[in-house]
Design a protein around this nucleic acid. Structure first.
Length: 697
RNA sequence: GCGGGUGUGGUGAAAUUGGUAGACACGCUGGAUUUAGGAUCCAGUGCCGCGAGGCGUGUGGGUUCGAGUCCCUCCACCCGCACCA
């Protein structure tokens, strides 16, 4: 039993066994019923635009009309969905998906063979092959049958083709070659008629998909463009009783069963192969002799004997299990009430805790987990189990951590490796080298030789200092690129606090960042310095200067934590610690609040520092310090004095001086005289506390 | 093709409301100290220039006393989705 991406060229990726397709009965969640709400409610979410937009695309709303065509000389009716009902008079043929149920009914005797061949060929292709991979070749087959144009009564040939998908809309289209790229190509390929319906456009020459074209040869719609033509077309179809306004969604229903052992079992049993809910008890996973499918391809649970199940009803239990997203869609609700034996979460608890305030996660779950959770939450809301209909109020996507690969340069056709600086002197091949043999871009040549038998005889063309420098590139972490860094080694070497701080220090939370461990020593040093500061802890009153440093740090750290700027939290703490060391701010009254500030970024160390500074209990229980305004304001300000926007010198002034006084002081300064020599002062701008700009000319 | 994002030193980055561009680190250079160190400390480090000075936030333009930040143009790269009628 394989997932799609475990199949390569019709063979299993592991083992290379032939793969057989087998139709299976599956449980499906009707998420499509929630498409409109999932789309509309996105507007109220405090999520990143990229995720919201990706979900909008995935849901894929499109507005248009459903139009009914009858099939000539039969009782069959053919429904199509179109976003361009205004181009109804440009229809010259119909196309059905090869799987469309009507195909076999309407195909004429003479076309039967070729149609079946085409269907066969299409069914052998996987969905992926049919949809993508740049394959845009036009193919199709004539059924020999005709549809009747609902407005003109004209006979329209019915074809089948790959490019019409069975799973979208009605699986059938009305083809308007003048106004649709694919229809136009199809008509050109098979020599079908291309009715001209746009004024001044030669549709034989080119397709015109823009909605700004004016319609012609379209009876009542003549002279209209898309914006007015579409609603006019819909009312035309409605009054003729052959169509109606329709909104379609791309979102498909979600398969909810897996043929694996590990997953929640369904509370379902079968009687005469008719499923029924098991209500007598909670079904748990039965023991099986092997976590493998049965001989005839049933899922592993089919191996369980009747007595292996904790509940057994009907003829047999359900053999499928639930997929991963069954649990991930609502686990946060269970967290609110984890020990409740009666229900997943009491209404009282979920009302108290409410939505998840902030969700930090990766963008890779955009169209899976993050959509399913929303769907699931809406369902539970509709059923009255919870009082909110969106799971996550605010969401931030953390960036991916990328690997930093190292490269060696092999001189072509030899076992000589040339150092990075001199690689251009030779014809070389760039090869990934295991980053474990590289430190500060310098290669450990012995380790490299021992890496693989083929490199045992390697020779090195080194740089002037006798070392071998590697090249580097930032790319996704991957085993094949030998750039995978496990945090375990770093934890072993520097401790978990250093790792945690370094991850934060790397850069903004939401940005992709290279995992380059070169800078880790800086963060490690900072923690050591912090410890050194506390090691000198003493009694006594801190100086005013130290208190200013402390309160400045409290303010910056608090503000930055609130805006999730963890990288600048670390640098603010670094500055604080450095300055306190310089100003001999070792007093316990100063150090205690500092230990609290450190606790979110270096929890283990902070606990230790809290104890050193005589803090009571755990630092985790200590109240967050508040910055005091009186320590944040200075009485002297250093103004940059600029001329025409260019800073020329600094001027220290009393902070209480008003704009006029500052201006007078600046103009009176000797360096100002030098700057304005021979020029006239046109304007002086003073922003109190910030800057002085003197405009001369 | 559609949508989203990112461009600032040798490197990771900072600049929160338009107000000293490069904070904080890494790396590098020089020095002190040490038996040693992946320890500590001091000084320097955007680019050009001996200097005065000039230039500088992907490109080109605009608004402004003042633009990394606002507006327009173009370019490059990354990530989604894509035969959706």
């Amino acid at each position: 039993m394989l997932a799609n991406d475990e199949v390569k060229d019709g063979l299993s990726e592991r083992g290379g066994h032939p793969v057989q397709r087998k139709r299976m009965r599956q449980w499906i969640m009707r998420i499509s019923a929630y498409a409109k709400r999932l789309l509309d409610d996105l507007n109220d979410l405090d999520w990143t635009d990229s995720i919201k937009e990706a979900q909008r695309n995935w849901i894929g709303q499109s507005q248009g009309a459903e139009v009914q065509f009858s099939v000539a000389e039969t009782d069959h009716q053919l429904d199509v969905f179109t976003t361009r009902p205004d181009t109804i008079y440009g229809v010259s043929f119909m196309v059905l998906a090869p799987e469309h149920p009507l195909v076999s009914e309407i195909t004429t005797f003479t076309q039967k063979n070729s149609i079946e061949q085409y269907q066969q060929a299409a069914s052998l292709k996987s969905e992926r092959e049919r949809q993508g991979a740049g394959d845009q070749t036009v193919s199709g087959c004539d059924t020999g049958a005709f549809a009747v144009h609902p407005m003109t009564g004209k006979k329209l040939p019915i074809w089948i083709a790959d490019y019409v998908l069975a799973g979208y809309g009605t699986g059938a289209i009305m083809a308007v070659p003048a106004g649709d790229e694919r229809d136009w190509k199809f008509a050109k390929t098979f020599g079908l008629e291309i009715p001209a319906i746009f004024k001044g456009k030669n549709s034989d020459e080119a397709v015109f998909t823009d909605k700004t074209a004016t319609l012609c040869n379209s009876e009542a719609l003549n002279g209209l463009t898309g914006s007015k033509g579409i609603p006019a077309g819909i009312s035309l179809l409605e009054s003729a009783g052959v169509g109606s306004k329709q909104i379609n969604y791309r979102l498909r229903d979600a398969v909810f069963s897996r043929q694996r052992y590990w997953g929640e079992p369904f509370p379902i049993c079968y009687e005469n192969e008719i499923p029924r809910l098991v209500k007598s008890a909670q079904v748990t996973l039965p023991e099986v002799d092997a976590y493998l499918p049965t001989e005839d391809g049933e899922p592993p649970l089919a191996r369980a004997r009747k007595e292996d199940w904790n509940v057994f009803e009907g003829d047999r239990m359900e053999f499928n299990t639930m997929p991963g997203w069954a649990g991930s869609s609502w686990y946060f609700l269970r967290y609110m009430d984890p020990h409740n034996e009666e229900i997943f979460c009491s209404r009282e608890k979920s009302d108290y805790w409410g939505q998840v305030d902030l969700y930090i996660g990766g963008a890779e779950h955009t169209t899976g987990h993050l959509l399913y959770s929303r769907f699931w939450t809406k369902f539970l809301f509709d059923q009255g189990w919870i009082g909110f209909h969106e799971p996550f109020k605010q969401m931030i996507n953390q960036g991916m951590i990328l690997g930093r690969s190292s490269f060696v340069y092999r001189v072509q056709g030899t076992q000589q490796f040339v150092t990075f600086e001199r690689r251009k002197e030779y014809q070389t091949q760039r090869l990934h080298v295991d980053i474990n043999f590289v430190e500060n871009d310098k290669l450990d040549m012995d380790a490299f030789k021992n890496w693989r038998a083929e490199y045992a005889e390697a020779e090195f063309i080194v740089g002037e200092d006798g070392t071998y420098s590697c090249g580097f590139e930032v790319e996704k972490m991957s085993k094949s690129k030998f750039n995978v860094q496990t945090p375990d080694d770093l934890v072993e070497r520097y401790g978990a606090d250093t790792l945690r701080c370094y991850e934060m220090f790397l850069g903004p939370l939401t940005q992709h960042k290279p995992w380059d461990t070169q800078g880790i020593s800086g963060v490690h040093n900072f923690l050591r310095k912090s410890h050194r500061l506390f090691a000198q802890a003493e009694e006594g009153a801190p100086s005013d200067a130290s208190l200013r440093i402390l309160h400045k740090t409290i303010k910056k750290v608090t503000d930055d934590l609130n805006r999730h700027a963890f990288n600048t939290v670390i640098s603010a703490l670094m500055i604080g610690v450095n300055e306190l060391l310089d100003s001999k701010g070792h007093q316990k009254g100063l150090l205690q609040p500092l230990a609290i500030l450190l606790s979110p970024v270096a929890p283990h160390l902070a606990e230790e520092l809290w104890r050193i500074s005589d803090g009571a209990g755990s630092v985790m229980d200590a109240a967050w310090p508040e910055s005091e305004e009186k320590w944040l304001t200075a009485d002297r300000v250093t103004y940059p004095v600029s001329f025409n926007g260019k800073v020329r010198f600094q001027l220290e002034l009393d902070a209480r001086m008003n704009a006029k006084e500052v201006e007078t002081a600046a103009l009176g300064h000797e360096k100002t005289a030098a700057q304005i020599e021979g020029k006239t002062i046109r304007k002086v701008i003073v922003v109190p506390g910030r800057i002085i700009n003197i405009v001369v000319g």
